[in-house]
C-alpha cells in the first residue's frame, strides 16, 4: 500500500538529490545553476503532489465538477517558480561577469587564480 502511494514522492526525492548532487559536485558554474533549477523544480513537484485529490480537477470553479484539487500549493509554487527564475537570471549574469573577469567558468580555475593572487599579496607583506 505504502509502496504505491508513496512512489510519487520517492521519484521526487531522487530527482531532488540528482539536482543537489550536480550543484555540489560539478565545477562548471552554468552546470551548477542547472542543478539548482532541477533541485528547485523537483521541490515544486513535491508541493503540487500534495494538492492533488484523486478524482479531482483543476481548481477553476464550474458547475460540472464538484471535486477540485487544492489551489493553495499551486499559488505557492507560482511564486516559487518566479523566485527560481529570478535567481537563475541573476546567477547567469554573475557567471557572465565572472567569465569576463577570470576568463573561465570552472570553479577550480577561479580558485587557483585567487590563491595565486592571495599568495602574491602575502609575499608583499
Amino acid at each position: 500500500m505504502i509502496l504505491s502511494s508513496h512512489f510519487n514522492y520517492w521519484i521526487v526525492i531522487v530527482l531532488m538529490m540528482i539536482g543537489f548532487f550536480i550543484v555540489i559536485s560539478h565545477g562548471n558554474l552554468v552546470k551548477k545553476l542547472m542543478g539548482l533549477s532541477i533541485f528547485q523544480t523537483s521541490v515544486f513537484i513535491l508541493y503540487i503532489s500534495m494538492g492533488k485529490v484523486a478524482g479531482g480537477t483543476a481548481p477553476i470553479l464550474d458547475e460540472a465538477y464538484s471535486v477540485y484539487s487544492n489551489p493553495l500549493p499551486h499559488v505557492l509554487i507560482l511564486t516559487a517558480i518566479v523566485v527560481g527564475i529570478a535567481t537563475t537570471a541573476l546567477g547567469l549574469a554573475l557567471v557572465v561577469r565572472i567569465n569576463e573577469a577570470y576568463g573561465s567558468i570552472e570553479e577550480g580555475d577561479i580558485e587557483m587564480q585567487d590563491c595565486d593572487k592571495l599568495d602574491k599579496e602575502n609575499a608583499n607583506k
Binding site: M50, T87, G91, L94, I98
Partner: peptide, 30 residues
C-alpha cells in the same frame, strides 16, 4: 573581481539554504 566570485558562491549556498527552508515549510504544510 573576487566580489563576483564571492557573490556567486553566496548565491549558490543561499539558494540551497532557501530551498531547504522551502522543503521544510512544505513538509510542515503537508
Amino acid at each position: 573581481r573576487r566580489a563576483l566570485w564571492a557573490s556567486y558562491q553566496y548565491l549558490i549556498m543561499g539558494t540551497i539554504g532557501a530551498t531547504f527552508i522551502l522543503i521544510g515549510i512544505g513538509l510542515l504544510y503537508m
